[in-house]
Amino acid sequence: MKDVLASPLAGQLLSAAGANLVIAEWTAEGCEEGAEPYWIAPLHLHREDDEAWYVLEGTLGFRIGGQIIEAKAGDSVMVPRGTAHTYWNPKAEPARYLLIMTARINELIQSIHAASDRSEEAMRKLFEQYEAELIGWY
């Protein structure tokens, strides 16, 4: 059952065929102290999908609505549908985390990575195709 087990998960996606749940383990590189953060995602919202993170190592910063938080190893973060959010690694050391998302969010991420036109207009249209809204870079 290759599509129900990923061992190790690092760098892979885990999602069974036809499932609406996808789990990814990713690493976010750190930033130098005082430098602008590297935004992992632009400020956006998903109209119909919830999204969650579990920090395995390091720290992730989040903007969720008007709130800024830092999640450290062992912390979980949930963003309900309709809530504007973005995230980044605010520390110098890498952060390793799980992203728990719907199949639609995963398809959006894959489409963003595959897009040849990365203009703001093209990205806004792409987000709309996946019931999401690109608000902009924080």
Rank of each mutant, 00 (worst) to 15 (best):
L5R: 14
A114K: 14
Y97T: 09
K72E: 11
I64E: 01
A71I: 13
I109N: 05
E32W: 09
I23Q: 03
R104N: 15
K125W: 06
M101V: 14
V77M: 04
A92W: 03
E133D: 13
V4D: 11
P8I: 10
R124K: 15
G34A: 13
T86L: 07
I40A: 04
Y130T: 06
M123D: 05
N89S: 05
R63A: 03
A52L: 11
G74V: 13
I112E: 09
I135G: 01
L9K: 09
Y38R: 13
I64V: 15
Q67D: 04
I100C: 12
M101C: 15
M101L: 15
G18C: 11
R104Y: 13
Y97D: 05
I68N: 10
I23E: 02
A73R: 04
S7V: 15
W137V: 02
I105C: 12
R47C: 07
P80W: 05
G30F: 01
L99C: 12
P90E: 03
R63F: 00
I135D: 00
M1C: 13
E25P: 06
A52S: 15
F62E: 01
R47S: 12
A35P: 02
T102I: 07
L126F: 08
G34K: 10
T27L: 11
A10T: 15
Y138M: 00
A6D: 08
E131Q: 15
A132D: 07
W137M: 07
N20C: 05
H113E: 15
L43T: 00
A115K: 02
I64H: 00
L14D: 05
H113P: 00
N89K: 03
A10I: 11
W88P: 01
V79W: 01
A52D: 10
R47A: 14
R118S: 06
L13K: 09
D75C: 06
G65L: 12
T27K: 02
M78C: 15
Y87G: 00
L99A: 07
E120W: 03
G65H: 06
A95N: 04
D50L: 04
K2I: 14
W137S: 04
W137D: 02
E133T: 12
A71D: 02
A84W: 00
I135R: 01
P80C: 13
E33R: 13
